[in-house]
Simulated scan of single mutants.
Amino acid sequence: MITHFIAFLLTALTGVGQANFIEWSPSRKLTWDDFKAPPDVASTNAALTSSSINVEFGYDEEELQFNIKCSFDKNKSWVRIRNNTILLHEQGHFDIAELHARKLNQALKAYHFNAKTVSNDVNRIYDSVMTLHHAAQNEYDKETDFSRNKEKQTLWLKKIADDLQGLKTYAAYSKQ
């Protein structure tokens, strides 16, 4: 039961800066106004999307409860060049994060609960999905040449949309 309290406490404490975050939603697309950070002078990128996938979990002797959040951080995301192609590319990054939040949800729902190892198990599952997430983000940038390869960009956006649709049953992040 203490674990439940800790998760709740972390939620209460982190709620203070929530105005800086946008939770992923199929109806809420990014706009350039969402990119609040100054551009990184050391980077040659046109823009940067800072997104995160967080999981809060608790358990008792019988089961795991969890909540997942996929968020865009306005204060860590920046833009140097503003055009629709780049904005769609950045939305693709946020959508890839959502795709992996759903994969995390899928993996946690498939998890066979073990009270003795649950914390390590959840961390292992999270780390495994995050490894896939980071690889997908890097592959996206590489194959699209950071949005400059328009044909690959179009193919990737379709693939991301199809993958999101394929995992729509895992869009509900909490298991109570």
Rank of each mutant, 00 (worst) to 15 (best):
residue 29 K to S: 14
residue 85 T to K: 12
residue 58 G to R: 07
residue 41 V to R: 13
residue 82 R to T: 08
residue 60 D to V: 02
residue 65 Q to N: 12
residue 67 N to V: 01
residue 73 D to V: 03
residue 114 N to H: 10
residue 88 L to C: 11
residue 20 N to S: 11
residue 94 F to G: 09
residue 80 R to A: 01
residue 79 V to K: 00
residue 32 W to V: 02
residue 109 K to L: 12
residue 53 I to G: 08
residue 25 S to T: 05
residue 76 K to Q: 15
residue 29 K to M: 07
residue 90 E to Y: 04
residue 65 Q to A: 10
residue 49 T to V: 06
residue 22 I to L: 15
residue 37 A to N: 04
residue 36 K to S: 08
residue 67 N to Q: 12
residue 69 K to Y: 10
residue 91 Q to V: 03
residue 44 T to R: 12
residue 92 G to K: 02
residue 90 E to A: 05
residue 20 N to A: 09
residue 56 E to T: 06
residue 39 P to I: 03
residue 62 E to M: 04
residue 83 N to E: 14
residue 65 Q to M: 09
residue 95 D to M: 06
residue 99 L to V: 02
residue 41 V to W: 03
residue 66 F to M: 04
residue 78 W to R: 06
residue 111 Y to E: 13
residue 57 F to G: 07
residue 84 N to H: 05
residue 99 L to C: 07
residue 27 S to T: 12
residue 89 H to G: 02
residue 24 W to L: 05
residue 112 H to T: 11
residue 56 E to W: 09
residue 40 D to K: 00
residue 116 K to N: 15
residue 50 S to D: 13
residue 115 A to I: 03
residue 40 D to E: 13
residue 57 F to E: 09
residue 83 N to P: 10
residue 32 W to H: 07
residue 97 A to T: 12
residue 115 A to K: 14
residue 22 I to H: 08
residue 34 D to R: 00
residue 28 R to I: 05
residue 24 W to E: 10
residue 46 A to Q: 12
residue 73 D to K: 05
residue 85 T to A: 14
residue 69 K to C: 02
residue 74 K to D: 03
residue 115 A to T: 06
residue 37 A to W: 01
residue 33 D to F: 00
residue 79 V to I: 11
residue 38 P to K: 14
residue 74 K to H: 12
residue 70 C to A: 14
residue 98 E to K: 08
residue 108 L to P: 08
residue 103 K to H: 10
residue 89 H to Y: 13
residue 33 D to R: 08
residue 85 T to H: 06
residue 18 Q to G: 04
residue 41 V to A: 15
residue 74 K to M: 09
residue 85 T to E: 15
residue 66 F to V: 02
residue 30 L to R: 07
residue 60 D to M: 03
residue 46 A to N: 11
residue 104 L to H: 07
residue 47 A to L: 00
residue 23 E to S: 13
residue 102 R to G: 06
residue 109 K to D: 10
residue 110 A to C: 01
residue 82 R to S: 09
residue 59 Y to Q: 08
residue 44 T to W: 07
residue 76 K to E: 14
residue 112 H to P: 00
residue 112 H to I: 07
residue 78 W to E: 10
residue 109 K to I: 01
residue 86 I to V: 15
residue 47 A to T: 00
residue 79 V to E: 00
residue 38 P to A: 15
residue 25 S to P: 03
residue 106 Q to E: 15
residue 42 A to Y: 10
residue 31 T to F: 04
residue 99 L to R: 07
residue 101 A to T: 01
residue 101 A to M: 09
residue 104 L to K: 08
residue 72 F to W: 04
residue 99 L to K: 05
residue 69 K to F: 10
residue 98 E to N: 15
residue 91 Q to P: 05
residue 26 P to D: 11
residue 110 A to P: 01
residue 74 K to G: 04
residue 60 D to K: 02
residue 62 E to Q: 13
residue 82 R to V: 01
residue 83 N to H: 09
residue 101 A to E: 07
residue 19 A to Q: 12
residue 43 S to D: 09
residue 57 F to R: 05
residue 67 N to L: 08
residue 59 Y to R: 05
residue 50 S to E: 13
residue 101 A to Y: 02
residue 18 Q to N: 11
residue 103 K to D: 10
residue 67 N to A: 12
residue 29 K to W: 02
residue 31 T to H: 10
residue 30 L to D: 12
residue 19 A to L: 10
residue 80 R to V: 00
residue 95 D to H: 03
residue 104 L to F: 06
residue 85 T to S: 14
residue 67 N to K: 11
residue 60 D to R: 02
residue 46 A to H: 11
residue 70 C to K: 04
